[in-house]
């Protein structure tokens, strides 16, 4: 189930704008569901409607892209995992941005989707390169911590903790967590409130 994510290669897609929130990524009306299936079709639904075919996710040259390049504070707002799920179901396998909101970042880790950061200038250049040459292959290398696109090479960042989880294939923490049942019970037993009769 868990696999190593050391490098992601694919065509890129630029999405310019700061503070793109999860309501814009997947409007709440599409959260009326009991599975994540089908969310890909509705990613950025309102923004795409508004731009009538001119949104990057609708432009023919970016169809099939796998690396999304964004700006500042991407994924702010609600904790809905539906947001990264919708992006992933559309086909995105990695994100490069100036910065990401915390819950969004954590959701992506749990899904095996790396989000790396780069300085604003790198992002600007990368977005321009992809726009002018949508067929170019972008490679995100987590081991070397760099992004490559033809002759363009620039450093990207991810803290050692999550980076290690991707590289070693331990980004899905569930199995590890469950395997510590004994320690979990021991920790719980030391917490005063766990044994209070009213809170059991």
């Amino acid at each position: 189930m868990v696999s190593e994510v050391k490098q992601v290669s694919g065509r890129g897609i630029p999405l310019v704008g700061d503070d793109i929130d999860t309501d814009r990524i997947i409007p709440a009306r599409y959260l009326r569901c009991v599975t994540f299936d089908g969310l890909g079709a509705h990613v950025f639904a309102d923004d795409r409607d508004h731009l009538q075919g001119q949104h990057a996710f609708d432009q023919p040259q970016f169809q099939g892209a796998e690396i999304l390049v964004v700006n500042r504070n991407f994924g702010c707002g609600s904790s809905r995992e539906h947001a990264p799920q919708a992006i992933a179901k559309w086909g995105i396998k990695a994100l490069i941005g100036e910065s990401f909101a915390e819950i969004f970042f954590g959701n992506c880790v749990a899904m095996g989707i790396p989000c790396v950061t780069a300085v604003a200038e790198t992002i600007r250049q990368l977005q321009e390169k992809i726009a002018s040459n949508p067929q170019a292959v972008v490679t995100l290398d987590l081991e070397q911590q760099e992004v490559r696109c033809n002759d363009f090479v620039a450093p990207v960042k991810m803290k050692d903790g999550p980076r290690h989880m991707f590289i070693s294939g331990t980004w899905d923490a569930c199995g590890q967590l469950v395997s510590h049942a004994e320690q979990i019970r021991a920790t719980a037993a030391k917490l005063p409130y766990v044994s209070w009769s009213s809170t059991r």
């Binding site: 994540f36 609600s78 995992e81 539906h82 990264p84 819950i103 749990a110 903790g161 923490a173 510590h180």
Partner: peptide, 21 residues
């Protein structure tokens, strides 16, 4: 107290714990 995504809801249900920094 903090918000979590659905994969983490799964983790809490299964283990009553989360992996956090």
């Amino acid at each position: 107290a903090f918000g979590i995504g659905t994969s983490q809801v799964r983790d809490v249900l299964a283990s009553q714990t989360l992996a956090l920094a």
